[in-house]
Design a protein around this nucleic acid. Structure first.
Length: 225
DNA sequence: GCGACAG
DNA sequence: ATCTTGTCGC
């Protein structure tokens, strides 16, 4: 896919400068734009780390079937160390290179990270979305900042707000979502050009199925031998 | 000062 | 994230 960068900046920066960049770009995040029901393709984005290399993988799935329609990977040396709150500086560079290889332009980008549920309201999901000016959301497996507002029902589909009390009036920065009964909840937050409700709806639409992409089945079979 | 800390 | 052992469920 053709990458039209709405914003750009240096990547070889200090942690202080990185935080400053996040604070500057956080003002560009938009919490509205996409309608989950109209989304036809979603790109799942993830990065694996081994030694000094980062490998980004992107798989575009169709909705509502979740059939893989395009994919790409890119491996490169880790550009930035892992620092809580600065994850995007390690993951964005390799992911951009993988996205550029796609032939199908996904309607939404889904990342394994937080978006607004971040100390400076600018997690990886926001970073990716704002630089590309594309819809994006974050789906994390654990909390970086904030607290669940109450107790989440064990029933699939239940959701409660994720709020940040450390600030003024305790703002809602995301949602705690149960995608399946008897599984740990995921933490969904806005990345860019999508509302929290649409982000939650999309997360649910993308989770209750078991269709496994061919490459993954192969890798799984090999790994247990 | 101490604890927390996406992946 | 990655590593590694044991256990539970379909």
């Amino acid at each position: 896919m053709k990458l039209h960068l709405a914003h750009d900046h240096d990547w070889d920066v200090s942690t202080e400068k990185a935080r400053a960049i996040q604070e500057r770009l956080a003002a560009e995040v938009r919490s509205e734009g996409v309608t989950a029901g109209a989304v036809e393709t979603v790109a799942g984005v993830d990065v694996s780390i081994r030694d000094d290399f980062a490998q980004a993988a992107v798989c575009v799935l169709s909705l509502p079937d979740l059939d893989p329609v395009d994919r790409a990977i890119h491996r490169q040396e880790i550009p930035f160390p892992y620092v809580p709150g600065l994850l995007s500086f390690r993951e964005t560079p390799p992911v951009m290179q993988a996205l550029e290889q796609l032939e199908v332009r996904p309607d939404v980008l889904m990342t394994d990270s937080h978006g607004l549920a971040h100390p400076r309201r600018f997690g990886f999901a926001c970073h990716l979305g704002v630089l590309l000016d594309r819809p994006a959301l974050g789906v994390a497996k654990s909390i970086l900042v904030g607290d669940p507002a109450g107790d989440l029902d064990s029933e699939k589909g239940s959701r409660i707000p994720l709020v940040d009390r450390s600030t003024d009036a305790g703002e809602t920065i995301g949602a705690v979502v149960r995608t399946r009964t008897d599984v740990n909840p995921v933490y969904v937050s806005v990345g860019h050009r999508i509302s929290l409700d649409e982000a939650v709806a999309l997360t649910l639409r993308c989770s209750p199925r078991y269709k496994i992409p061919e490459p993954t089945r192969h890798a799984h079979r090999l790994s247990r031998e």
